[in-house]
Design a protein around this nucleic acid. Structure first.
Lengths: 125, 125
DNA sequence: ACAGGTGTTTGACTCGGGTCGAACACCTCC
DNA sequence: GGAGGTGTTCGACCCGAGTCAAACACCTGT
């Protein structure tokens, strides 16, 4: 239909408009295996992301704004692991991808685990 | 003294009698880093040990009595990791080494973490 | 259309942890 | 003191996760 590059407006309510957002799959923490949750949380860089994310309101931190001692390629990988483990939700806004910590959902599935991570003192990651 | 094969009885109360027991060092869970705890618990074989150990009274299971899909060398390694993480206490009795799950101490240091492991259903480890 | 910014994907490399067999250490009972 | 059983240590192997640079995909300004 005409010149637009997305679906009609009616669909926009339910389906993501951009191609990028369509490729963004989220795993419900309820269906995550303990193995995957522990693997996700066992990496110090990923824990650093979670702690940094916990200090500010939802969807106010884009992936690139974190202070991480790794390249952006590696950082992108870590964000994907955290998302797959049900630990964070991401929404695209323009070229940036904003993050939200799924505190309640994840804690419901793995009580106490996220609290341990957030209580950890910041190290020289 | 008479016929005993160890040091004087007075010492027996504080110091281990055998050389083997002297090499058995235990880490207090209070001093364990979150990184080490997560690393210890992130391995499926080690979680299997913890779950199996949780089903029976303290110090009734020797290392060799666990049903593990690995060689005894690897199993020995896993027990050492769990001990270093403050997850279990071991005592030598004859040639065998009996285990105790340090539930309370470990849960005081990492609330909820051990519970997650023990609640996990037994898999085909 | 182009440029600049953000994030992902790909391919390749590295390194550490899990794994094993074999050798060793230790204990106990003949 | 040997024999047999339990557990650890050693040396070597292997595979996967973390890592990076480079290329790519996508969005938004101008």
């Amino acid at each position: 239909m005409s010149t637009d590059r997305g679906p009609a407006i009616a669909e926009t309510q339910t389906e993501p408009a951009t191609r990028r957002a369509r490729n963004l799959v989220h795993n419900d923490p309820a269906g995550v295996a303990l193995q995957d949750a522990l693997d996700a949380v066992a990496d110090p860089v990923r824990r650093s992301i979670l702690r940094e994310l916990s200090t500010e309101p939802d969807f106010t931190r884009a992936c690139g704004t974190f202070h991480l001692p790794v390249s952006k390629a590696t950082a992108s990988h870590h964000f994907a692991v955290l998302r797959a483990a049900g630990l964070l939700e991401q929404v695209d806004q323009g070229p940036r991808r904003f993050n939200r910590l799924r505190r309640a959902e994840f804690d419901a599935r793995f009580p106490g685990l996220l609290a341990l991570v957030l209580a950890e003192p910041d190290g020289p990651v």
